[in-house]
Design a protein around this nucleic acid. Sequence first.
DNA 1: CAACAAGTTCGATCGCGATCGAACCCACGG
DNA 2: CCGTGGGTTCGATCGCGATCGAACTTGTTG
Lengths: 110, 110
Amino acid sequence: MAETEACSPVPGLAATAAVAPVQVVLAALADPVRLEMVRRMAAAPGRTERCAALYDDIGKSTASHHFKVLREAGLTERTSVGGVLHQRLCLDAVEAALPGLLPSVLSGLD
Amino acid sequence: MAETEACSPVPGLAATAAVAPVQVVLAALADPVRLEMVRRMAAAPGRTERCAALYDDIGKSTASHHFKVLREAGLTERTSVGGVLHQRLCLDAVEAALPGLLPSVLSGLD
DNA sequence: CAACAAGTTCGATCGCGATCGAACCCACGG
DNA sequence: CCGTGGGTTCGATCGCGATCGAACTTGTTG
């Protein structure tokens, strides 16, 4: 807490918070659950998706934890769509900070 | 042991073993020590460097462990240069499997 | 051939992160 | 104005991975 982090509780459109150091981004993407979340957002229209649509077989609290990690890595942000909370993938911001990384990871058909 | 892994003890030039799934590659790069190792190899001429030149403040056994992780992720391979063991970064193989990833990660001046 | 240097393997320890359940918050809809 | 659904926070547990030291392997050199 008391971080410089943009912890604003859904300020509408939080103007793309800064992307964290590579190390943090890599750690965030290294988890299978989170990578899947990122993939689903990337596939969604507007890179935005309902929280519940981003996971399948884990508890709500665990999912929320992963959301937080992704957010703190600067990969995603919160958005409110008609009163319903959504997670949005900051494609452009990440692409600007680490060009080529996301496309590469997302196309990883390994 | 008894894996399908190319555990060949320095066969001269192990013809670029296959790059592991994205998930594994990301996990390998997520560790600060390993990322630094990769950076040093990338900066070395021919992407090849003596093992001892790749780390600073950790034990030999720990370093060896990290070499193994990198190797099993398909990021590096062993080479023998005049009887001295070296680690070589498989730039081209990784670039072929995950184009843009390494350049992006290596230039991460975050 | 014997000694040594450089990596690897093995076994054990330790801390961090993934996970869960319960309690809490907040925005809507009756 | 109170109930309900969807996320978040909190506290505790558990397993995996990072680390180390010691023993082993191998290849080079005196």
